[in-house]
Write a protein that binds this DNA or RNA. Structure first.
Length: 462
RNA sequence: GUCGCCUUCGUCUAUCGGUUAGGACCCCAGGUUUUCAUCCUGGUAAGAGGAGUUCGAUUCUCCUAGGCGAUGCCA
């Protein structure tokens, strides 16, 4: 069994494409079949190598590995040419010299009359030998096919016209190339976005005309933006790689995407293995879905909380490099991640949190500082400095005990000491459990930062 | 315009004729917590509209409306 993902390289791999790729990939994996990647680059005006690279990068990051390919349609022009010639020879296709102007006028007229805008067959029997090549679509009857997600679809041949299969420069067009490729590559399942539903009957006629067996079709609903409009740049990040940059784990994105349009009862979290095991095209929804960043964020946090720690280390590495955070000197990154993982929605947030363990800062967040570093706090900070300077066993337990001691001696609640201490340690006030954080930051840096806080307080005193 | 596809809480969805229409995200309230976060408890919120079939429709049929797609020498 074989299925394929066939993007056209006219931009990066976007969310919708990634979801299609995922479903196709899952279906292939589930059947223990082959997943083929084919680049549909017949439109040479718009196709770029940069886009091909971007698509490949996106798929690699998501872990959607392909068993065959990438095949490029531009490498197969001879084959398409032969098929087109064959169709002409068998009188199943013909040349047409109608000008774009004539065609446009025709469309306008038909539309004005309230009729279907389609080619009128002007050149059908002229026996021309140049121009575009059109496929002779059957005039009667209808095309019926059973779509794995949409069910039975029935289209009258009257609605279809003689579509162009070769441009006037001889290059083949999409509807011809897909059919030839899917046949030659022995694709059993054509799974793609439902914007292709309307092309399917035309393609079926091509298959039939060529005497080829039909693949099974499955048309996936589109992904819309939060406003219900087709997902586009104005909805924010649509490129898959932008999600890596924003600190998402690939498995979180995959999990989000698989649940957008597919479900298995009430289950929300799926490992990739579970997806493969449970995925069914018949459980794919017919209706389009809206992309919802909040839910993705929630899933990302779930994955950050539960992921294998080494995996997290590996994934975080890219962000650490990106932000030039050197973790080779200082506490074990594993411990730092464990201290941070429950409070990070993204790896970018986590990277921010990591900084305080490896980098010194020279100022406190002004808003927090003005609130926390009051003159009344001075004796508390001084007491902490005194006791910590003496502390031999720099462990979270001891650190915690001392905070408690100071609170008792000064007759204040834990928060009165804990809050300023947290701000002194982090500079921002955003940090986890202070004892654990202080242990990881280390004695030297903790004392330095407490002294910095003390300075701050004595300065506002003046 | 014409043709095709689609329509359950704000969002993602469950339901395969009989349910107080369930779950999840978000939001709100309460609890745990040295802040935040995590965690726990609870809450708000839905079958586009109209006919029909049926003892009974969210579920089946039809109509209408709305959305999306196609109508390209794009894919």
């Amino acid at each position: 069994m074989k299925s394929r993902f066939a993007p056209s390289p006219t931009g990066y791999l976007h969310i919708g494409g990634a979801r299609t790729a995922l479903f196709v990939w899952l279906w292939a994996k589930k059947q223990q079949g082959q997943f083929i990647l084919r680049i549909e680059d017949t439109d040479r005006e718009r196709s770029t190598q940069a886009s091909v690279d971007a698509i490949l990068d996106g798929m690699q990051w998501l872990g959607l590995t392909y068993d065959e390919g990438p095949y490029y349609q531009t490498d197969r022009f001879d084959r398409y040419k032969a098929i087109i010639q064959q169709l002409i020879d068998e009188d199943k296709a013909y040349y047409c010299e109608c000008s774009p102007e004539r065609l446009q006028t025709l469309r306008d007229e038909l539309m004005a009359k309230g009729e279907k805008a389609k080619y009128d067959g002007h050149c059908q029997h002229k026996n021309l030998i140049s121009g575009v090549v059109r496929f002779r679509n059957p005039a009667e009857g209808n095309v019926v096919f059973s779509d794995l997600v949409k069910g039975e679809i029935n289209v009258h041949n009257k609605e279809l016209d003689d579509l162009i299969i070769a441009r006037s420069d001889g290059t083949p067009t999409y509807n011809l190339t897909v059919v030839v490729d899917d046949h030659d590559m022995e694709i059993d399942y054509v799974i793609r976005g439902d914007d292709h539903i309307n092309n399917t009957p035309r393609q079926i006629n091509l298959y039939t005309s060529l005497g080829w067996d039909l693949p099974t079709f499955a048309h996936l609903p589109m992904i819309l933006g939060s406003d219900g409009a087709r997902l586009s740049k104005r909805h924010g990040a649509v490129s898959v790689m932008a999600y890596r940059d924003a600190g998402f784990l690939p498995e979180a994105l995959l999990n989000y995407l698989v649940r957008l349009g597919w479900s298995h009862g009430d289950q929300e979290v799926f490992s990739v293995d579970e997806m493969i095991k449970l995925f069914e095209l018949k459980n794919v929804n017919k209706a389009p879905g809206s992309f919802n960043q909040e839910k993705l964020l929630w899933l990302n946090q779930e994955y950050i909380k539960t992921a294998d720690i080494q995996h997290l280390v590996d994934q975080l590495d890219w962000h650490l490099n990106e932000q030039s955070v050197d973790v080779s000197q200082g506490p074990d990154i594993v411990k730092v991640i464990n201290a941070l993982r429950e409070r990070s929605k993204t790896l970018v947030e986590m990277t921010q949190g990591v900084k305080m363990f490896y980098q010194d800062f020279d100022r406190f967040d002004e808003k927090s500082a003005s609130k926390q570093f009051k003159p009344a706090t001075q004796p508390i900070i001084e007491a902490l400095i005194a006791k910590y300077t003496e502390l031999e066993d720099w462990s979270s337990e001891e650190i915690h005990t001392i905070v408690k001691q100071v609170c008792e001696e000064q007759g204040v609640g834990f928060g009165k000491a804990g809050q300023p201490f947290r701000l002194a340690l982090s500079g921002t006030g955003n940090a986890g459990s202070i004892d654990v954080v202080a242990e990881l930051v280390g004695k030297k840096r903790t004392l330095a930062r407490l002294n910095m806080a003390l300075n701050y307080i004595t300065q506002i005193d003046d």
